[in-house]
Design a protein around this nucleic acid. Structure first.
Lengths: 211, 211
DNA sequence: GCACAAAGACCGACTAGTTGGTTTGTTTAC
DNA sequence: GTAAACAAACCAACTAGTCGGTCTTTGTGC
């Protein structure tokens, strides 16, 4: 395996420090020191501290958006799609927890030119979720009295909040957490008929090879 | 009605600015200018910029904790208590949206002596919610396979996330949003028997004079 | 009711320290 | 030789906090 490049080392260090102390709680000098780099090396790889922040945002949102779009493509009923999206969404927290923390804590400090790009991808992600819920209602799988927006934001909020409490080495694995979320969500959105079909939710997930 | 004191004017201005630009995106000078105060007036009322941040945190968490404790006292079944807590919790977003935004965006920047106090109240709030869920399961109203912690954090996350998208003058009133959340939550946590009793959720809420 | 002093509220120019970013010159590695 | 990276001095801008002073209110003795 190739050694880590300087750029990667800087990003790793910055991520760790930003997560703990916040973007403004960390100086460029400190990032440089703790990643065994130099100021020259830093500014060779990044135009500015702002650009580094943008880069962190972009890596995460790009990943999660792609995962959602893949999940949409690879499954073909609203219920399966919703499960798959939530599943992959939750799993991201294992890999990208520092990214996510920075994403939700520091996005106010993104400069306009950067935040615009990020917001486009974020909105696209929301659109996919809303779409699935809308199709679920139309297909009769989800309860017709649901509000697409509030249901969508409830799901997004519930999952996103994980970044505030999830501990990678805690008592719950990320898969267990995902299963609980999906259980919670399916009980809320499915119609009685659809619930009959799914029957046992854990079994349903297993049969779809999601867990 | 008495005029607003300087302190109140400073807090109002700071809240508005912090919400939009973040704690580090706003200087004391700017707060002072936009609240028609002076540097001296600011430091007469607050020991430091940090203390102002703490004050904002404390007002919100104290309010929401009291509301949850009141809801617990005033109702006597787990289902009613959960509804009442969520109800009052969501309503807080109407009054305290800027506080909440600052609370969740800027808490990393609270100095240790302050964040300790805040965390105690926040943990106490969580404790109340966990307690209600635990009692709901024990009483047979909530599904026994629920995880108290994950269910609790799901509810808290779902509601808290509201601060990211709620617009006080948007198409949904805060009461409508609260009703949707409660509907979502009750469908997830209630056992089949308990659902029979509650029957129609909107009707249930109305009968308890919650909406 | 008044004189006056003490306390508290508030002002704003100033300071001292910090920090993102630059520059210049050097070194390493393919 | 060229690009990536280092080292360190340097700067300009910014910003939290200070400090001496003024104005206003309140309390007290007579």
């Amino acid at each position: 395996m190739a050694e880590k490049t300087l750029k990667e080392r800087i990003i790793d260090t910055a991520l760790r420090l930003f997560e703990q102390y916040g973007y403004h709680g960390v100086t460029v000098d400190r990032i440089v020191t703790e990643s065994d780099a130099s100021k020259g090396g830093f500014y060779h790889n990044f135009k500015s501290k702002d650009e580094l922040l943008y880069h962190i945002h972009d890596v995460f949102i790009t990943y999660v958006l792609n995962k959602a779009q893949d999940a949409y493509k690879n499954y073909h009923t609203p219920t399966e799609r919703l499960c798959a999206i939530v599943q992959s969404f939750v799993k991201v927290f294992h890999l990208y927890k520092p990214h996510i923390t920075v994403f939700y804590q520091e996005s106010t400090y993104l400069r306009p030119e950067y935040s615009q790009k990020i917001n486009e991808k974020r909105d696209e992600f929301k659109r996919v979720i809303f779409q699935v819920i809308r199709e679920g209602i139309e297909a009769g799988e989800f309860r017709p009295e649901l509000s697409v927006e509030i249901t969508g934001m409830s799901i997004i909020g519930m999952v996103n909040w994980t970044y505030k409490w999830y501990k990678p080495n805690g008592p719950m694995t990320i898969e267990q957490i995902a299963t609980h979320f999906i259980d919670f969500i399916l009980h809320s959105v499915l119609t009685e008929e659809a619930k009959q079909k799914v029957e046992n939710i854990s079994f349903f997930l297993a049969s779809k090879q999601m867990i």
